[in-house]
């Protein structure tokens, strides 16, 4: 048994937001009389942590702590319209809508704070901890909770804000394909290292190491979660997964997880990453979408690594042991042929 090792490189870009735009998201924010802010949305959390990330954006934009933000999402009786969670759009679109709504809510707070603190608006500032301060007068400050209560019970005013974000829909020129498909682009570069068993055709992925540029990380732990989970899915796509293993023959289609191949915890390689931040011009705090792309760059990096290990080019997915063994056989045959053709006639 020989284990051949090789390294492969890939680099990718990935667009943020629904292709061609036209995918609005709204947010509504209102303050309760206890000073917490309800952020009403219709985006869904698929596990990527949308509620957490949007909570962070809302807290940042409102100038309050995370505990004072309640995310109420995906109930169409209370949440305003949202296009949905797909196309690496949710943090970008919803985040922008939340910032717009928070700005309006802050203005409403400042209206009341001016009266309550008897200070000029230009002297008021948020401390980010749930208070509004009068600049240069540390003893004159008010809790946002008290301002919200005063708004309701003393002044009869609402503390609320509306926000929407939409990249206008771009038409496509059907002749040239001229179009504006994206809001911004994130980037990744992956280096994969594999070992290929020449007897069985089995590929062991030894490491997947990547650099990602994602604009701004709202929550670095969640970004890393996407990168590690995406590396797994990319590896799974590269080497294992399909519903039709003999495509285009539709037969032998797996029915369940016992038949549908995926790597498990045992197969996972070392996954390392570095994350760069070059804020985008139009994302909330410079965000770019990172959800989908993390599965993309590992695939060609692994396939290229297999080539550099074995000399076998495989242009199809998934790369099965059978494809590798057939490729190795073909190379061996070609080498023998080359040898015989250079042997002088006897």
């Amino acid at each position: 048994m020989v284990k051949l090792r090789g390294t492969g490189l890939s680099a990718v870009n990935y667009p943020t937001g629904m292709n061609l735009g036209g995918d609005p998201s709204q947010a509504l924010i209102h303050a309760t009389t206890s000073g917490s802010f309800v952020v009403s949305l219709s985006a869904t959390d698929l596990g990527q942590g949308l509620r957490t990330v949007i909570g962070q954006i809302a807290a940042e934009a409102l100038g309050v702590g995370m505990d004072d933000v309640v995310i109420d999402t995906a109930d169409t009786d209370t949440g305003p319209h949202d296009m949905g969670t797909f196309a690496s759009r949710a943090t970008h679109r919803v985040g922008n809508a939340v910032i717009a709504a928070a700005q309006e809510a802050r203005e409403a707070l400042l209206d009341v704070a001016e009266d309550e603190l008897e200070a000029a608006r230009s002297d008021l500032e948020f401390d980010g901890q749930g208070n509004i301060l009068v600049r240069g007068a540390p003893d004159r400050s008010m809790k946002i909770a008290d301002i919200a209560a005063a708004a309701q019970f003393k002044y009869g005013r609402t503390i609320a804000g509306r926000g929407v974000y939409m990249k206008p829909r771009s038409p496509v020129d059907p002749e040239t394909g001229a179009m504006d498909p994206d809001s911004t682009e994130a980037h990744a570069c992956t280096v994969a290292e594999v070992a290929v068993d020449t007897d069985t055709g089995e590929v062991t992925v030894l490491s997947i190491r990547s650099a990602y540029e994602v604009g701004r990380q709202i929550n670095p732990a969640l970004v890393k979660g996407q990168i590690v989970g995406g590396a797994w899915m990319g590896m799974s796509h590269a080497l294992y997964e399909t519903t039709q293993p003999y495509y285009p023959d539709p037969a032998y289609s797996p029915k369940d997880f016992s038949e549908y191949l995926m790597p498990g915890a045992y197969e996972m390689p070392k996954i390392e990453c570095v994350v760069l931040e070059y804020p985008s011009s139009n994302g909330p705090y410079g965000v770019k979408g990172v959800g989908e792309m993390t599965a993309n760059s590992p695939i060609p990096a692994i396939v290229n690594a297999i080539y550099h290990a074995t000399g076998v080019r495989i242009d199809e997915l998934p790369v099965t042991p059978e494809l590798i063994l057939r490729g190795l056989d073909a190379r061996a045959r070609a080498a023998r042929l080359a040898e015989t053709s250079t042997t002088p006639d006897s």
């Binding site: 979660g225 590690v228 989970g229 590396a231 797994w232 997880f257 498990g264």
Partner: peptide, 10 residues
């Protein structure tokens, strides 16, 4: 089976 995390965090 986990489809999200890549198992390492688990």
């Amino acid at each position: 089976i986990c489809r999200c995390t890549g198992y390492e965090p688990i």
